[in-house]
Design a protein around this nucleic acid. Structure first.
Length: 221
DNA sequence: GTCCAGGGTTCGT
DNA sequence: ACGAACCATGGA
């Protein structure tokens, strides 16, 4: 099985995921910061709060007192921390000239700049680079690591950066890398979320109707 | 009550 | 470079 085979199998099983939900690049960025250790449903609630107050705007979020922003962010948990992180992101984003200026940067430089923002680590940076700026970087998360570890295709102890480079090199010949990378990450999360929880790595948790994807896509560790 | 979520990021060693 | 500590809601 190649990395491409796994993608094809997942796509065949689950179909297109249409990630990332969000009407604008900025909404994708906000969602990326808020979803750290948080279910997407809770992120949607917080985004809805922000939208209802017509505050889904970089400058408005900066101007808002952080304790008031924290109130809107209650559903995501860690709301005090995330209010700070979101505002530090917005200050950087606005100062860097927002989307129109940042989109001109080289992918590697853009990624470096994102990582310099307090509260933005490798995964959040890559979510934004891939889904908001539509650059071909592969997002690595805990699910990706777990699935491919069970498949025996990685060791599991590799650094974030090493895994990202591995996935990118294995998929290097793909025609539309951005679309593939977007969909691949979404499919991994979808698959893992529903059928391969860490707690019960049993076949039954990974079955979809008559097809046991778990048997095909990862034996228990 | 317990565990997990589209757990990652930061900070200390 | 690696591990620990941190944040703190909602749903199953």
């Amino acid at each position: 099985m190649t990395f491409n085979d796994i993608y094809k199998r997942l796509f065949k099983e689950y179909g297109q995921q249409h990630w990332w939900p969000g009407d604008t690049p900025f909404e994708v960025m906000v969602g990326a910061v808020l979803t750290q250790n948080t279910s997407w449903k809770n992120v949607e609630a917080a985004l809805s709060n922000i939208k209802q107050h017509e505050l889904l705007d970089c400058k408005k979020l900066i101007a808002l007192p952080s304790n008031q922003l924290a109130k809107l962010l209650r559903p995501v948990g860690y709301f005090n921390v995330k209010a700070q992180r979101l505002q530090s992101y917005c200050r950087w984003y606005d100062g860097a000239g927002q989307f129109s200026k940042l989109r001109k940067l080289d992918t590697v430089v853009l990624r470096q700049r994102l990582l310099s923002v307090h509260g933005v680590g490798p995964e959040t940076a890559d979510d934004i680079t891939l889904y908001a700026f539509e650059r071909d970087v592969f997002v690595i998360d805990a699910y990706t690591r777990r699935l491919f570890c069970r498949l025996g295709m990685i060791d599991g102890t590799e650094s974030y950066e090493r895994l990202r480079e591995l996935f990118e090199s294995k998929l290097r010949r793909s025609v539309d890398k951005v679309t593939l990378f977007k969909e691949y990450h979404a499919l991994i999360v979808h698959h893992a979320k529903h059928f391969c929880t860490a707690r019960k790595p049993k076949c039954s948790d990974c079955c979809l109707q008559s097809v046991c994807l778990y048997e095909e896509l990862g034996k228990p560790a």
